[in-house]
Design a protein around this nucleic acid. Structure first.
Lengths: 139, 139
DNA sequence: GCCTAATTGCGAGTCACTTGCAGGTGTCAC
DNA sequence: GTGACACCTGCAAGTGACTCGCAATTAGGC
């Protein structure tokens, strides 16, 4: 696995726990540390929650995963290679939808041109109401 | 003050603490509950932190203030009448810049048309790197 | 001024991490 | 293959940011 290189280059190790955490993040798509821990425990029950937190942080430093804020405070983790979409968080039902980054391209460019602000599209959640909830509401 | 109507209409009271919390939010522009509490304590030292939290929630229900997630987990409160701008949060220096809602208009419309997703522009923080930090980084 | 329901203050509790530390283990040099 | 050492893990305790329950207080209608 190429992951090993990313870690070794920084003098870090590829431990079983670390592999499991990375695998869990990849499998879950987007998950909170708690969800990752739960997933990992299905195959390795003894793993400690603080180990999960530390590994998520380590993997993020190396660039294999990234986190996003989906509101409500908690961070959500993603495998870095899956970060090709925006997150549409529904404030009503709590669901998280996806949209391609392209939708935001104009917006990102406008912010860059007018404000010199370099937007990190992968890190931002869009808050609102999803179509299902909006339809239900307006009935 | 018109605020009183908003509250009384819902059978709520306008207490000194509530006025102070609202005044603090208006004066601070955007502030965390902790900052609001600190501000309020300058004029009314005895106020309890849980009172501040409860009042922020109450004022939000009434529509006089709103909260936004600026990353890092904590919610940030704003006076409702000041919510005419987006928040540009710099991940490097932590500063919070403003941009008019119009910048996002196309983006919001695109999401509405393509995904039926009704974006709550006032609730979303844009994460990235501000011009000052970006200039410093690329040196 | 009186009465009642909304509020407040306080202390305790919860949730989501974070930290310190001692023991374990992957890696590298030889 | 062996040994040394820095990196990791698990555990337990700690921290920050709220949230809750309850008795005492008080705003506001009558």
């Amino acid at each position: 696995m190429a992951d090993q290189h990313e870690l070794r280059d920084k003098g870090l190790r590829l431990t079983p726990q670390r592999e499991l955490v990375l695998a869990a993040v990849r499998e879950l798509g987007h998950a909170t540390p708690e969800e990752v821990a739960e997933k990992v425990r299905q195959t390795h029950p003894g793993i400690n929650l603080s180990t999960v937190y530390r590994n998520l942080e380590t993997l993020e430093n190396v660039g294999l995963v990234q986190h996003t804020h989906l509101g409500h405070g908690g961070a959500t983790y993603h495998a870095a290679e899956e970060l090709t979409h925006l997150h549409l968080v529904c404030g009503t039902c709590g669901s998280v939808g996806d949209a391609p980054i392209d939708v935001a391209a104009n917006f990102v460019n406008a912010l860059a041109d007018d404000y010199g602000f370099k937007t990190d599209v992968t890190h931002f959640a869009v808050y609102g109401t999803c179509s299902a909830c909006f339809t239900a509401e307006s009935k």
